[in-house]
Amino acid sequence: MSETLDRSAALPILRAEGRPRKSLSLDLAVTTDFLVAFLRDEVERRKGFKRVVVPLSGGIDSAVTIYLAVRAFGAKNVHALRLPYQTSHADSLAHAQLVIDALGVPSETVDITGMVDGYAALEPTMTPHRLGNIMARARMIIAFDKAAELGAVHLGTGNKTERLFGYYTWHDVADAAPVNPLGDLFKTQVRALAEHLGVPEEISRKPPSADLVVGQSDETDLGISYGRADTILIHHLAGFEDAYIQGLGFDEAEIKLVKGLVARTHWKRELPIQATVSSTAIGEFYLRPVDY
């Protein structure tokens, strides 16, 4: 067959890789509308409140939460809280202030050092880890109290990745809140939403940190970047096997790390366990939805 003939006989080929993938990309305008509608329905329509309290850590999750809250309720109905401890990074306070200034929301700063150290002084064996948990829960107590003072609801700020990894203090300020708009968004999705909502870059671009122990960062603590972790998580949760996830460009060790973090922390995503002794046990036999 001559070269000319061969060329003329060749049909154009369309190639498409057929492997289904779960996408982390969101339509950010629709997502924003949905989350704003959620906040209004839960806070105003169902609970009957007009105001919310949002504790700001200086990080991206609480920043995105308060940007959504301002869209839902208007700046004057959103009360920002800054809750520093003496060792908190100076940037945490400064970045929270950036958000407050950008949105023009009323705000208040309560230093938790006295509250935390008052107890810590009674405990000679106190460790940095325990102290971090005390800070996180002290902030929760204040957020609830400020909500009571202002006739408001305090918003949770935890994202889906940290919830799946159990990478937070159980019943802390971000976790133990009546309403949380970000609990079903992976960290990479929160980042995209931050950009869409106009959260200052100083906040959206800095390495995430719980800032409970000096110098800590999420991705160092976890041993994997959020970008890689989220892609593994979304496929793992959707029921794809490890071999399939490897085919998407991940190695066995990464997948094992991610699945291990999820598997060890199921308890953290649940309410405290009760002994079931009857056929009317709450949540087991007696089943009513939260808004019933």
Binding site: F34, A37, F38, D41, E42, R45, R46, D184, P289, V290, D291
Partner: peptide, 8 residues
């Protein structure tokens, strides 16, 4: 339309 326990 509307939300029921977070499901919209």
């Amino acid at each position: 339309s509307g939300f029921e326990g977070g499901k919209g």
